[in-house]
Every structure is written in structure tokens, then in C-alpha cells.
Design a binder for these strands. Structure first.
Lengths: 202, 202
DNA sequence: GAGTTAATTGATCATTGTTCAATAAAAGGA
DNA sequence: TCCTTTTATTGAACAATGATCAATTAACTC
């Protein structure tokens, strides 16, 4: 059989990533397989390699969708809130997301993706969008001249959130891991923001 | 052939992990293979499975050695230093370690290890030893009554260090990644410690 | 309707982790 | 010393993987 045109290229792309999403959610990256995807969507393996240059590329695109999902979850907190409370709101949603989509989120940081040299532009843009949420939240703490320091602090917080959630995944008790991650994030925000207030003039 | 006794069980264990270490250092976890190890040490695959229950178990033990290596690198900073400067010293060594042993360090956080339920006791002990270095460094900032908060702050810092170094590995430019990780860690320490001083009475 | 283009297939290849009956060397006992 | 038991070691065999690519055939073009 050939050129069935049952589905457009875009539809196929969606079907493949939907199925990949499902498999990763179910059993982590380990249970993701090109053959299984093909079987499930009713096409052959070759079709997958027609759309994605290789398996890592498929994972990268799946991760792109995960970043989108995360962004959709992290709605912009109201500007009426303290920077501190905005951060708390963001971080709590973040933790919740990483816990309910554990396998999917882990996939973002799989080692196989950092072998190549650098991530593509479109991917980094998705990360930047997330970072901007944090940057906006802490903006009131910085004078408009200190955009570099604001940016760096956003990165510090982003990395730290990541670190806390990442290591939480190694805990066996799921309930406990979630609450401990929340506690640590809370400590981080409290102290880091207090520190910022000490050093930032305004 | 059987029961050659060319090497004791302990010697074999070392030989296998040495070779695994080499392979991971060279090309990351992806280029680690039981067959290749066997070939290199002059034994057959079966022998490896005689010493390790499965491949993940082998990786876990390799990671154990990596944690040991890290601990040996992170010498206890002199108590005469500020908590802040002790932390800086620890974190700089940490960053250096993660950068020079990038593949090996990445291996510590590979997703395949967090599938099972919880890490073994001996492994967690190694992590605790590392955490204690941080806890000792920040001890002067807490009253002796606040051991819980001290412990939590140590975790926050540990997780944050991890997060910063972890995400630094996704940058393509190696030099830049290192210096940026150093900058972010510096910011983290400065602000977090300043925050602690605000909230901790003594 | 002939010719061109491109989507789809699936057999094929090299590799992987893992198993386990077969084997042979050492240890223990008489 | 010889027999038995124990145990380290082997490697063929299995199932599964990512990846390739010539062959096929449907759709499009003119």
C-alpha cells in the first residue's frame, strides 16, 4: 500500500505524538517504541521515520508539546499579588504539573537529548516563554536598569524549581514527595526574595 | 570454561565498574553495553549478570561510585570561613565536578533509575553524606533548636545546585555553560543566605 | 492517459538486555 | 586419591529495539 492519504502530514504528526504521549504517560520513556506507535495508529514504522528524522527527534517534539502543556497550566498570576505570592502560585502549579505528569515531565530531561550540540531555536523559545512568567512576577523587585540581574534571578528560581521537583521524583512515597517539594519551594521563595529585597535598592 | 578464579568476586566487581565508568565517560549512558564490558574485561556477558541483578543495578552501583568520587572532591571547607564562603567553595567544586565528569554525573539522574520504588539504603546514605557537608556549612546561621529548618535549607540548596548544573548541561557552549552556572549559583547563595539572616533570629 | 511525484510498506540489519542449560573447575569429605 | 557437591563461567538463543531503503502504489500534473 502507498499514499493512502487517509491523513494529512499534520494529522499524522498529531496522531504519532498523541500516541507517544500516551505511552510515556503510562510507562515512561522506556515503554515508548516506534513499532508500538506505528501499530497503534495503524501505519508502519517507516511512516514515523518519514515524519521524524529519528527517535530522539520524536522525543524532542513530544517534549515541545509538554512545554506547551506546562505553559497552558501556568496561567499568569494577577499583578495585584506580591512578587512573592505570584511566585508561590506559579511554583505550586508547577509542582502539581510535574507530579501529575511525572513520566512526561521526566522525559524533558532525559540524557539522550543533551548529547547533541544545543537545542533547536523553536524549543528554546518555549522555555523562554516559561521563564518570562517568572521574570514578570519578580519584576517589581528590580529597578528597570537591572534587567540582567532580573533575568538571572529568574533563571536561578527556574533552575531551583526544576532541581527540587527533579529530586523529588526519586522519593518512593508519592504523597510525601509532593508535600516536601512544596515545603522546599516555599523556603526557597521566602529566603531568596527576602535576600533580593536586602540587596536590591528599591 | 568455568570457575577460572582469575579474579575474585570483588576484583570482578571493580573491573566491571571501571570499564562501565570508562564507557559512560566516553559516550554517555548510551554507549554503555553489557556485551562491550564483558568483551573488554575478557569475560562473557553471563559473568556480569552473575554480579549484578540487571543492567539498572549495574548503573546504580556505578552511580554509587560517582557519589563517592563527588564526596572525595568536596573536601570540608575550613570552619573559619563564613557560611556563605563555605557554600561558595563547596558549590564551585561541585560545578567543576559536574562539568568535568558531565556524562558520569548525568547518569546519576537517568530516568531509568526512578522507575523502581525508592533507592536502596546504602545509596541514600551516600547522598546524606553529601548533604551533611552543606548542613555543616550553614549550621552557624541556625539556632540549635532549628535543626529541621537547617536540614530543609540544606536540601533547598542541594536541589538548587543540582537544578542549575542539570540545566547547564543543555547549553551547547561548554565554557559559557560553566561560567553561567557559576554566576547563578553565586546569586542563589548570596540571596538565600541574606534571606536566612533576615528570618533566623540569631 | 501517460508520466511524475511522493507517501507507505515491511523485510532486513545490527544491537540491545536477559536467560539458562551445559560445562568445568575448585572445595569438601571419606 | 577419588567421588561428590558446589559454584563460577560460558555462549547460544530469545525477544525487542531503532533505523534503512528498494519496491510499490496512489495521487497529482499536464
Amino acid at each position: 500500500m502507498a499514499r493512502r492519504y487517509d491523513h494529512s502530514r499534520e494529522e499524522l504528526y498529531e496522531m504519532i505524538l498523541n500516541e507517544a504521549h500516551r505511552q510515556v504517560m503510562d510507562g515512561g520513556l522506556r515503554s515508548l517504541s516506534a513499532r508500538k506507535i506505528a501499530k497503534e495508529i495503524g501505519y508502519s514504522v517507516g511512516t514515523i521515520y518519514n515524519l521524524f528524522s529519528n527517535f530522539d527527534d520524536l522525543i524532542l517534539h513530544l517534549n515541545g508539546r509538554t512545554l506547551d502543556l506546562l505553559f497552558e497550566n501556568l496561567s499568569v498570576p494577577p499583578e495585584t499579588l506580591d512578587p512573592e505570592d505570584q511566585l508561590r502560585e506559579l511554583s505550586m502549579t508547577y509542582i502539581k504539573f510535574t507530579r501529575t505528569n511525572q513520566n512526561l515531565w521526566n522525559c524533558l530531561f532525559d540524557n539522550r537529548l543533551l548529547i547533541r550540540d544545543g537545542l533547536p531555536e523553536w524549543y528554546n523559545k518555549k522555555i523562554d516563554k516559561l521563564l518570562e512568567l517568572i521574570e514578570k512576577a519578580i519584576a517589581p523587585l528590580f529597578s528597570s536598569l537591572n534587567s540582567l540581574e532580573r533575568h538571572q534571578s529568574a533563571w536561578v528560581l527556574w533552575c531551583s524549581f526544576h532541581g527540587i521537583c527533579s529530586l523529588a521524583n526519586f522519593q518512593s512515597d508519592n504523597e510525601e514527595a509532593t508535600t516536601y517539594a512544596a515545603t522546599l519551594t516555599d523556603q526557597l521563595i521566602t529566603n531568596y526574595i527576602a535576600g533580593l529585597k536586602v540587596y536590591q535598592p528599591q
